[in-house]
C-alpha cells in the first residue's frame, strides 16, 4: 500500500500550485492537519508513533511557514519549476535598486545614531510597503506571465529588503534595551 502523503506543500494543503494564495484556506487546512498529526494527539502513544507524529507535525509546520511567507512561497514555486534563485551567488542588481538600498541603509543608520525609534519604526513601515509592491509584481511574473527569470530577480530583491528589515529591527531592539 503506497503512502498517500502529498507530493508538495501546495498539495498538502489542497491548494492550487500558484503564487496567489487563499490565506483563509491555508490557515484552516493547517489547523485541520495539525489537529490530526500533532504530538499532543499522541502523548501516550508508542515511541514509533510519537516519532512519526513529531516528523509529520514538523513537516506540516515547515510547509505552512513556507507558503505563508510571500518570498518563501515564490522561492519554493521557482524550486518546483527547477529554477535556482541564486541568492548567495547572484548579487548583481540594477543601479537604481542599489541606490535605493544605500538610501535605506543610510536612513536606518542615521536613525540609529540619533536613537530615533519613531524614525526606525517608520522605516519598517516603508519597507513593508516596498515589499508589498514587489509581491504584487511576483504575482504577475509567476501566475500571469510565467516569467521565471523576472520572478527570481524579485526574490533576490525581497531578500535584500529582508536584510535591511532585520537590521532595522535589531537597531530598535538595541535601543529599547
Amino acid at each position: 500500500m503506497a503512502s498517500e502523503f502529498p507530493q508538495n506543500h501546495f498539495d498538502l494543503f489542497r491548494l492550487p500550485v500558484r503564487f496567489a494564495l487563499d490565506r483563509a484556506a491555508l490557515d484552516q487546512n493547517y489547523r485541520a492537519l495539525q489537529g490530526e498529526v500533532h504530538p499532543d494527539r499522541y502523548a501516550t502513544a508508542t515511541s514509533a508513533e510519537r516519532l512519526r507524529s513529531a516528523q509529520m507535525a514538523a513537516l506540516v509546520n515547515e510547509a505552512y511557514q513556507t507558503l505563508k511567507s510571500p518570498v518563501d512561497r515564490a522561492r519554493y514555486l521557482l524550486h518546483l519549476n527547477g529554477v535556482d534563485t541564486q541568492e548567495e551567488t547572484n548579487t548583481a542588481m540594477p543601479a537604481d535598486f542599489l541606490m535605493r538600498q544605500m538610501e535605506w541603509r543610510e536612513t536606518v543608520e542615521d536613525a540609529r545614531a540619533a536613537a530615533d525609534i519613531a524614525a526606525l519604526e517608520k522605516a519598517l513601515d516603508d519597507l513593508k510597503r516596498e515589499a508589498a509592491e514587489f509581491e504584487t509584481q511576483l504575482h504577475t511574473a509567476l501566475d500571469e506571465k510565467n516569467d521565471h527569470a523576472r520572478a527570481a530577480d524579485l526574490v533576490r530583491k525581497l531578500r535584500f529588503l529582508d536584510k535591511v528589515r532585520d537590521e532595522t529591527e535589531l537597531a530598535i531592539e538595541t535601543l529599547e534595551t
Partner: peptide, 27 residues
Amino acid sequence: RASETFAARRMDASIARALTGRKIDDL
C-alpha cells in the same frame, strides 16, 4: 516495531480524512 507500518497507514489515512470528506465542505 511490528505495528509501525500500521501506525503510519493510520496516520496517512487520518491526514487524508482531515482534508476531505466532512471537512472539505467547510473549506
